[in-house]
Design a protein around this nucleic acid. Sequence first.
DNA 1: CTATCATTCAATCATTCCATTGAATGACGA
DNA 2: TCGTCATTCAATGGAATGATTGAATGATAG
Lengths: 221, 221
Amino acid sequence: MSIRNPKQALYEQFAVVAKALGHPLRLEMIEHLAQGARSVEALAAKLGQPVANISQHLQALRRAGIVVAERDGKFVHYSLADASVLSAFAAVRSVAERQLAEVDRIVRGYFDARDDMRPVSRDELQALMRDGLVTLIDVRPADEFALGHVPGAINVPLGQVKAWSADADACREVVAYCRGPWCVMSFEAVAALRSLGHAARRLEDGMPEWKAAGLPVEVVG
Amino acid sequence: MSIRNPKQALYEQFAVVAKALGHPLRLEMIEHLAQGARSVEALAAKLGQPVANISQHLQALRRAGIVVAERDGKFVHYSLADASVLSAFAAVRSVAERQLAEVDRIVRGYFDARDDMRPVSRDELQALMRDGLVTLIDVRPADEFALGHVPGAINVPLGQVKAWSADADACREVVAYCRGPWCVMSFEAVAALRSLGHAARRLEDGMPEWKAAGLPVEVVG
DNA sequence: CTATCATTCAATCATTCCATTGAATGACGA
DNA sequence: TCGTCATTCAATGGAATGATTGAATGATAG
């Protein structure tokens, strides 16, 4: 609450709005309110959340000037403050969708209508590794690999996949993994390997899920 | 990192982007990067911030897909990921500016070309109060009033200004204050009072600044 | 190979945010 | 006036965020 110069004050005002948009529940609430005004209870029911929680999020949105409240008897109906809210929502979404779109593009470009775009499950991978049937590569940057990786995995950062594959046994199947189901890196690695004639598949998800499943993790150092 | 349904995952992805925009420094960084690529050091110098701080914020922006990094010798140049970032920034800004615009609108609509739109300074207010020449009203909600207000102020939440003024001495000048220089409430209160024939002025800023100036504060309870 | 410089990492502490619970408020109907 | 119901407030604890410091990394120049 100290004295700020006008420029900082402006950026702070903008940040208040963006911060209010920075929560999945609030975004979902905005999308519902875009359909029309809703009472707190109605919103809570739609989202399957406790009423008090929704009430607090609504007030956060109201403080940011994103929604407005109107009392009607014992109900308070909330609605979007104006059309600019929807364009802000859409703009944020389009930034976010660029990355998801990237996944889509890669999947569709390289895998659609091909033999086997089915990912390898964690159980399946463990069996394959135990029998020595596949080479497992971790295509994340070296630092992330060092922090923890699947035992037996080789670190081949995405940029080095092509070079690595030149020296690799072309007949041996490769399984690639990265940060998680939404991460593009393992998609790209598999695409690159396949285009070079290697048999390659993806692990269904990435390191965080592996660790979360209570499976063993190897750490460098 | 637990398993989410696809819908939640989407909203979370959107929230990551919005959250990355939710910091004044990052917004300022984006505006600079909109001019063209910048090294970490160059940005830090522009914003007068420690390099490490800027580096961390840049990585937050990169994780959200808002900026991209490109190494060039021993410099890393950051730039905006694509044009959609700028439209998201603009959209957030336009939501935020609605409120600032509201201040402008009110100021221009009610005060321009009128006698006395000059706000009351803190020193002036203290003198007026000491001599008993004005009634001081705090137009914030009751809870904020209770947490601390200017000694001698009466709490008249914005919605009750009209009703309150009916019983007030119409010849006595009123001074209104609220949360701060950017807050619309005291503007609205003064506008309402003037339209009802009362003499009314605004305190130059609000409670936080009053407290920050080391002036006495009265607390309820 | 070593020194240097841009950048990033790691660790700390203070602050803020979030979900949950139970109590308080405010308006309506009997 | 009293009970009921929608909403909000208040308080708690746990998690994430932000600023700062100093050390580590990675690339270039000598």
